[in-house]
Amino acid sequence: MTNPLHPILMAKPEGPAEDGQGAAVAEKEELALEPPRLFQVVMLNDDFTPMEFVVFVLQEHFRHDIETATQIMLKIHHEGRGVCGVYTKDVAATKVELVLAAARQAGHPLQCILETA
């Protein structure tokens, strides 16, 4: 009958390892992790996209309640731009694409951009 264990796994260490000589201790290095950079999703004002559509997009894609969505929409309307949310780069880029796709599908020229926070 053959031994099911691999011969390398069964081999005993050779040399002076049993008396502690030559043994090495691996120290765990602490990684300096930085939080991911954040990006703002910003909607820009135009004279053609209905305010109701902007509120809808803010509720649908950014999960704002009606009051918050309305306040952001008014900021966009009066100041020319408004921050919809702050996210990591991948999430923010996805939100921008979703907003632009929804605007295109609805036939509105709504613009949405990504900026560093």
Rank of each mutant, 00 (worst) to 15 (best):
E29K: 11
E27T: 12
D46V: 10
K95A: 09
D47H: 15
A103K: 00
M1S: 15
I113H: 01
P4M: 08
Q21W: 06
P50V: 10
H108D: 00
R81N: 10
V42P: 05
E34D: 14
R104G: 09
G107R: 07
F56W: 12
F56P: 02
C84V: 04
T2A: 12
M43G: 08
I8M: 10
R81Y: 08
R81C: 04
L58G: 05
A32G: 03
A117G: 07
Y87T: 08
R63Q: 15
M10D: 08
A103W: 03
Q59F: 14
A32L: 15
G20N: 06
H61R: 13
L9D: 10
T2W: 12
D90I: 06
R37V: 13
V41A: 02
F39Y: 15
P7V: 10
E18Q: 06
V83N: 05
R63D: 15
T116F: 12
D19N: 06
D90C: 01
H61I: 14
A101H: 02
F62M: 10
N45H: 14
H108A: 00
R81L: 09
E18R: 04
I113G: 02
A23Q: 08
V57C: 06
V96I: 06
P16R: 09
L58C: 07
V25K: 01
D90K: 03
F48R: 02
V55Y: 08
E30P: 05
A103L: 06
Q111P: 01
T88Y: 06
T88F: 01
L114F: 07
L31E: 14
L38P: 04
H61T: 10
H78N: 06
V41F: 04
E79G: 02
T88L: 01
